[in-house]
Amino acid sequence: THFTSQQLQELEATFQRNHYPDMSTREEIAVWTNLTEARVRVWFKNRRAKWR
């Protein structure tokens, strides 16, 4: 999946605040970024792996 810079900005900003967002937070992010909750969940999983 290719993310727009706007989507990445929103995802990264949320990641800085919370590395493990809950389901409702992921659903909110999905609405803001026009992505599915599953895409958001996978992005956070991959981002945490990169962060370690």
Rank of each mutant, 00 (worst) to 15 (best):
residue 42 V to E: 15
residue 27 E to C: 14
residue 47 R to I: 02
residue 18 N to L: 06
residue 18 N to A: 04
residue 13 A to D: 08
residue 34 N to E: 08
residue 14 T to W: 15
residue 39 R to E: 15
residue 33 T to Y: 09
residue 21 P to E: 02
residue 6 Q to T: 09
residue 14 T to D: 03
residue 13 A to K: 13
residue 15 F to H: 01
residue 12 E to R: 02
residue 11 L to T: 00
residue 43 W to Q: 00
residue 30 A to L: 02
residue 21 P to A: 06
residue 8 L to S: 06
residue 43 W to E: 00
residue 35 L to P: 00
residue 52 R to V: 08
residue 17 R to L: 11
residue 28 E to P: 00
residue 25 T to M: 13
residue 15 F to I: 00
residue 36 T to W: 04
residue 29 I to C: 04
residue 11 L to A: 01
residue 8 L to C: 09
residue 11 L to P: 01
residue 49 A to Q: 10
residue 16 Q to N: 08
residue 12 E to D: 03
residue 52 R to T: 07
residue 30 A to V: 02
residue 2 H to Q: 11
residue 12 E to Q: 02
residue 4 T to C: 06
residue 39 R to Y: 09
residue 33 T to E: 02
residue 31 V to N: 13
residue 16 Q to T: 08
residue 9 Q to T: 08
residue 20 Y to K: 04
residue 38 A to P: 12
residue 9 Q to S: 10
residue 30 A to R: 01
residue 29 I to K: 01
residue 7 Q to A: 06
residue 28 E to A: 14
residue 3 F to H: 04
residue 27 E to Y: 12
residue 4 T to S: 09
residue 26 R to P: 02
residue 28 E to C: 14
residue 10 E to P: 01
residue 24 S to R: 14
residue 44 F to R: 00
residue 45 K to R: 12
residue 1 T to R: 12
residue 27 E to R: 14
residue 5 S to R: 13
residue 28 E to F: 08
residue 6 Q to K: 12
residue 33 T to D: 01
residue 35 L to I: 06
residue 21 P to S: 02
residue 1 T to M: 13
residue 6 Q to M: 10
residue 45 K to M: 11
residue 52 R to Y: 10
residue 4 T to Q: 04
residue 14 T to R: 15
residue 29 I to A: 01
residue 10 E to V: 15
residue 43 W to R: 02
residue 46 N to P: 00
residue 28 E to Q: 14
residue 34 N to D: 10
residue 52 R to N: 08
residue 30 A to H: 02
residue 17 R to G: 07
residue 24 S to C: 12
residue 14 T to E: 14
residue 21 P to Y: 03
residue 10 E to F: 15
residue 16 Q to E: 08
residue 46 N to F: 12
residue 39 R to M: 15
residue 29 I to M: 04
residue 48 R to Y: 04
residue 8 L to M: 07
residue 10 E to S: 13
residue 36 T to G: 04
residue 26 R to K: 02
residue 12 E to L: 04
residue 28 E to N: 09
residue 27 E to V: 13
residue 21 P to K: 01
residue 20 Y to C: 13
residue 22 D to S: 09
residue 50 K to W: 08
residue 19 H to W: 06
residue 52 R to H: 10
residue 22 D to A: 07
residue 23 M to D: 05
residue 17 R to H: 09
residue 39 R to G: 09
residue 52 R to M: 09
residue 35 L to M: 09
residue 46 N to R: 13
residue 23 M to Q: 12
residue 45 K to A: 11
residue 51 W to A: 09
residue 25 T to E: 14
residue 19 H to R: 12
residue 46 N to V: 11
residue 28 E to I: 11
residue 9 Q to V: 10
residue 35 L to C: 07
residue 47 R to A: 05
residue 41 R to W: 06
residue 45 K to Q: 12
residue 13 A to S: 10
residue 34 N to R: 07
residue 10 E to G: 07
residue 5 S to D: 12
residue 28 E to Y: 09
residue 32 W to Q: 15
residue 35 L to E: 03
residue 38 A to F: 13
residue 31 V to S: 12
residue 18 N to D: 07
residue 34 N to S: 08
residue 20 Y to S: 05
residue 19 H to C: 08
residue 46 N to L: 12
residue 41 R to T: 06
residue 35 L to W: 06
residue 24 S to W: 08
residue 18 N to E: 06
residue 3 F to V: 06
residue 17 R to D: 08
residue 49 A to G: 06
residue 37 E to R: 03
residue 21 P to Q: 01
residue 34 N to H: 09
residue 39 R to K: 14
residue 24 S to Y: 10
residue 51 W to L: 11
residue 18 N to S: 05
residue 37 E to A: 06
residue 24 S to T: 11
residue 9 Q to A: 13
residue 6 Q to F: 14
residue 14 T to I: 15
residue 37 E to V: 06
residue 31 V to T: 11
residue 25 T to C: 14
residue 29 I to H: 00
residue 24 S to D: 08
